[in-house]
Design a protein around this nucleic acid. Structure first.
Lengths: 135, 135
DNA sequence: TATTGTTATACTCTATAACTATA
DNA sequence: TATAGTTATAGAGTATAACAATA
């Protein structure tokens, strides 16, 4: 039952992101880096549940667009220090605001009570570890 | 927030289905045919939101396993009459029972009130047309 | 020798196009 | 000629393996 709903929400999110000119992976990366900088690409990949080879082109584009910085760590030049730039932060927050606005619009279909309970329940279920859900 | 949850739920469902020896697409097809027989493969494909070329191998396997019947329509031998068999119905219902049992287990993490509200809200949101969610 | 990042390759899933058979 | 089904082909997305740079 939730699957088509999530599919629609993702489609909505993609549409918003397209208006902002960023891809889903770019948005995921920007969101991760908006919380805190990360010292290696492998750590970023793991944090967002992606393969380390899969994010390289995304990082290329983000760097070229000036939305992230990506420099060799002076202390270990194999690693790349990753951080979001001011432009990146602005872009991410603007996109996030639009995404949230749409979600609010959708949630407006619910009564205030159901809506609160839905969000509370979704949060509780999302907090369950993957293994516990899979069993 | 919902996306990882759904991902975990799908993983759980896949694990259950694997124990029953059927694939996700097989389960989707069996579920569609358990409701009512379908006169053409194209109609089935549309009903489950799949491409008509994509379900052929699935139908091959289901037929070989004796879980569905698939015969040329005597009145128009281009079409294939599709129906679930008794074995297919048993397999589908057994899998469904296990899937539901796991979902119950997961939902047990919620209070009775939140759980009811969550299901009610999920149902309401799922009933929204795709276009209204995308905007 | 081990690790980080990158590139090259292969694999899976899906969609598009061409083909066969029926009408 | 049009339609149902099938097969062949191509494309996107992803993961695996090999490689270069640094430690």
């Amino acid at each position: 039952m939730l699957q088509p709903l999530v599919k629609s929400l993702i489609a909505a999110e993609l549409r918003v992101l397209e208006e902002h000119g960023i891809s889903m992976w770019s948005y995921v990366v920007l969101s991760a880096l908006d919380d805190s900088p990360i010292r290696t690409q492998a750590a970023l990949a793991e944090a967002i549940g992606a393969d380390k080879t899969r994010i390289i082109s995304t990082l290329d584009r983000l760097q070229e667009a000036g939305l992230i910085s990506r420099e060799p760590d002076p202390e270990d030049r194999r690693a790349r220090l990753l951080a979001i730039t001011q432009d990146g932060r602005s872009a991410r927050r603007a996109a996030q605001a639009d995404i949230r606005a749409n979600e609010e619009r959708v949630l407006a279909a619910l009564s205030a009570a159901d809506r609160q309970a839905f969000l509370r329940a979704a949060q509780a279920l999302s907090a369950m570890p993957h293994e516990e859900i899979v069993g």
